[in-house]
Nucleic acid binder design. Structure first.
Lengths: 225, 225
DNA sequence: ACCTGAACACCGTTCAAGT
DNA sequence: ACCTGAACACCGTTCAAGT
């Protein structure tokens, strides 16, 4: 009859947003959608399939940058879009690091990163590696932020340092002032991205220099910021 | 009577290594250690506490670099040590991204990174940010590797690209040769680290340049390799 | 304090039965 | 084919009882 898959994923996403991943049970999803738990199986194929569906939903929400932007702006758009998706759906986003995710949505994001890196002048042989490097950071950052890995340690530096004899943590002691200031996650993410994009450019420049040495082809520096 | 906590964590770690996180149930751990499930509670304080204990175990296994090494070698030692711990205990390592982890073990690792970054010349105000940047990448990389996020997509590029109309994935098409070659995870991790350490150095140099402009203090470039 | 055993309120999933 | 309802083999945890 009707394809209930979209409605099932809607319900599951709502439950995940409201009560975390632990609240997403086949029974709870079924109840919200007005079906028996077993009625979900033909549509999502079990719990794993349901979670894959949620991840696909989340990735399809990430806006792809238009081709009119320069490569650095395109990477920034993607990174901020991914981080925004994490803020909207923290529980589901946590699945991203730990799941293969062969979803079509993830393919399109990767494709956009590939195009940006090629436009930046990163040699083809290095593009997949650099894509994984940048993606790993962005996904890792958003996950850490959303799961509390960042905020937990920094709440009270004194008690943290107090866990061990003070002379075992000299750098912590020297940085107490900075650490006590806490984290401005928005600013930090932007600063990290700036450093990483500079890194991408230096990979590109390094390749061009090697190529110029043998074939002397100059190359225009792509503007940042 | 006897403190069973170490034995409990031993058993739980074994079970996690053998059968994944799903196999780590209070009942299974209790059985292996020769107790009733409820007997674990005074020692680890429930399931969450048990998982925290596993994470602490894992982090305490990461070797800390000696002070005789230069900053870049120290960061490399830490990064490879963390990745090696992930290879030994893949299931437990997956908890790292998603858990606060205020463990003493993680404190010592962070301390070592702080010291290395300060030695590299990264200004104190930027050290915590750069620590989080590098740690996020290293943890994210090891997690992705261990959970199959990297390998899954690349197994068969043709079918992957076949999911969508070919002209929607031009960069994928151009990179088919590189993508089909697969991933040498060891080499890729080393290359990523090299690029990130160069980035750290450029952050340090940027700061020194600003400082030199006002106070003209030269600074020795720390050797890499 | 530490441990046991029974019980409670959940899980995902199988299976036979209905339409 | 799609859906139901009962059942199975699990969970983490509470609680009263023992020592």
């Amino acid at each position: 009859m009707a394809d209930h898959r979209p409605a099932i994923l809607d319900a599951a996403l709502e439950i995940a947003d409201e009560g975390g991943l632990a609240a997403v049970s086949m029974r709870a999803v079924a109840e919200r959608v007005g079906l028996t738990p077993m009625a979900l199986y033909p549509h999502v194929g079990g719990k794993e399939g349901l979670l894959d569906g949620l991840l696909e939903r989340l990735l399809s929400e990430v806006p792809l940058p238009g081709p009119e932007l320069d490569w650095a702006s395109r990477l920034r758009t993607l990174a901020h879009g991914l981080r925004a998706a994490a803020a909207r759906h923290p529980a589901v986003f946590g699945l991203l690091v730990s799941r293969p995710s062969v979803a079509a949505g993830s393919l399109l994001v990767i494709e956009a990163v590939f195009q940006a890196l090629l436009a930046a002048g990163v040699p083809a042989a290095e593009v997949p590696r650099v894509e994984r490097l940048v993606s790993t950071f962005v996904i890792g950052y958003a996950t850490s932020e959303v799961s509390g890995r960042f905020s937990a340690g920094t709440v009270d530096v004194r008690t943290r340092v107090g866990q061990l004899p003070p002379d075992e943590l000299p750098a912590h002691r020297d940085l107490v002032a900075t650490l006590a200031a806490g984290i401005d996650a928005d600013a930090e993410f932007a600063a990290d991205l700036a450093d990483l994009l500079a890194m991408v450019e230096s990979v590109a420049v390094r390749a061009t220099a090697g190529q110029a040495r043998s074939a002397k082809q100059p190359r225009t520096r792509v503007g940042r910021r």
